[in-house]
Amino acid sequence: MGCFQSKTRKQFPGHENPVILASQTAFSVSEVEALFELFKSISSSVIDDGLINKEEFQLAIFKNRKKENLFANRIFDLFDVKRKGVIDFGDFVRSLNVFHPNAPQEDKIDFSFKLYDMDGTGYIERQEVKQMLIALLSESEMRLADETVETILDKTFLEADVNEDGKIDKSEWQNFVSRNPSLMKIMTLPYLRDITTTFPSFVFNSEVDEIAT
């Protein structure tokens, strides 16, 4: 027999104070509250537990929960700061903050380096780049001869691996992206500037008395 439960507010295990989150990020309090509306919708799409699991994350990106994708997995793992297999609200906001148009470029470069350093060795290695390239080709159902893949890798390392040790370190990456700024486009989400207009319902659910903007 179940226990009686009065109507309590649904629990969000990592729901940190919006005022504190705003103070740690480029978001205003209103924007953090608008992000909470987005978070609620994603975190309840499969299991309504107030946390985002990998399936929910992929569903939000692809509108298809069965789609496996190396890159979406990789982003999920970086958002899952506490390594619990789920993203709580605090980590969601702090991770998205890196993608804010006003976030420091250094943070964006750092995040992108971690994204591609899949094994966490502190280097982007040739076999990692090859793995990502092959994943991309299979995702887009594009066929390239092995020889062409190797040519692309050769060209990439010729440009990025300045000390020619076969791997790309952080400073080589900083140098490489500064010469190829288009690579950092994925690290900025213009949507984050207008988040309060995208999720206006935050106003009705606000927990903060005076909404600071």
Binding site: I42, L136, L183, L189
Partner: peptide
């Protein structure tokens, strides 16, 4: 043509890296 691009230019076009989809209702 892919061969004229470096690997990261190709990779950065992956849909899985496009977090903008999170904001599309």
């Amino acid at each position: 043509r892919p061969v004229t691009m470096n690997a990261f230019e190709l990779i950065s076009k992956s849909q899985g890296l496009n977090l903008g989809c999170l904001f599309e209702k």
